[in-house]
Design a protein around this nucleic acid. Structure first.
Lengths: 193, 193
DNA sequence: CCCCTACTGGACCAGGTGGTCCAGTAGGCT
DNA sequence: AGCCTACTGGACCACCTGGTCCAGTAGGGG
């Protein structure tokens, strides 16, 4: 019922994020989280109604953190001749917050398929339609190919970025290469000319 | 110990694949599999030593199915001026076996991160280095950009294909568009000129 | 001071997990 | 026939999961 209130909120979110990092979103154990947060079951169920609500609250908290650092650009602004320059600067702004591990994790949370009704699907849908709107603006600016469905292009963008991200995380990756790769590859994949 | 032998092999693999489809690789329940295969615990542990061995055997069986239908092209053959035509025909050959749902599932199994030592990591590594070898051949043929690490390009290929695959699976996807997308997008993303 | 509400600790629950153990039994070999 | 091995059924195990319940207790308002 209550959507995670009270003094334990911060500790609970922190412990949950750590658990996500260790065991993934699906594999996260409520018992482990409570143990880490030094909180009893009953206290937890008093503050947050269920495991699902906890997870939703955490997702929302992470999203808020991101939006506090990175103001999401209006897709309409991308309908301009310098479309790709604007994409580059948006990517640069976004890359700036990749430093904070808690925020980088938000991305990882969305890598798994989610069932409807959760905050994840909601946020993921919002991000997805934002990307689609940006692509649509790029199309009217003549900067983005229009010979494939825009939803397909959106999915390709997500997949590509995820692939780059996973490479960047796995061992022998050069951070500088990882930072410039999205701009280069997205432009080649989608850009006209 | 034994790597899944005996008369139950077929039924066990079938039930396991069905369970993978229903609950995912990680969420697959051994008990459900045994119930579906009408096999008792002791019989199972006699035939296959553990859940992990079952999963390995199933992965290997699916891989064998794929290799029976699609002969993996030698990467060396891609070092040619018509590199992208060869990629297209390889993609077409691979798309032909997307019809069989059990085989399509193999891909989905590899979407999740795997810990070392399992057949999944082994096969995934093999596929990954095959793709890297093809890309290297494309580079020497002058058909593939060489301004980014080849491992990064490989990761980008995996991500892109996964993104397209997920789009193709989710509802309102046009199968024809989904079939021609990989060739188009891979070439734009990686191709020179 | 008393009471009432908000909160807390911890025992407890049903149901699931992968895995073990042992008393059988069926089938081929000698 | 006798035996020995390969297999089977099912009870049982420890441990984990998310969730419930209840007897408290701390703290602020009347």
């Amino acid at each position: 019922m209550t959507a995670l209130t009270g003094p334990h909120r911060a500790a609970l979110i922190e412990a949950t994020v750590a658990e996500f990092a260790a065991a993934g979103y699906e594999g996260a154990s409520l018992n482990r989280i409570l143990r880490a947060a030094a909180l009893s079951k009953s206290s937890f169920y008093h503050a947050a109604g269920s495991k699902a609500e906890l997870f939703d609250a955490v997702v929302r908290a992470l999203v808020d953190d991101v939006r506090a650092v990175w103001v999401v650009p209006d897709p309409a602004g991308f309908d301009a001749p310098d479309f790709w320059a604007r994409v580059d600067s948006a990517l640069a702004g976004f890359a700036a917050l990749a430093g904070e591990p808690a925020l980088a994790m938000l991305g990882r949370i969305f890598y798994l398929p989610a069932q409807d009704g959760t905050a994840r699907t909601e946020v993921l849908g919002a991000v997805r339609s934002w990307v689609a709107a940006v692509l649509a603006a790029g199309r009217s600016a003549g900067a983005v190919h229009a010979d494939l469905p825009i939803e397909l292009q959106t999915a390709a963008v997500f997949g590509l970025l995820r692939g780059i991200d996973e490479w960047a995380l796995s061992g022998d990756a050069d951070a500088a290469e990882g930072a410039r790769a999205p701009g280069i590859l997205l432009r080649r994949m989608l850009g006209v000319g």
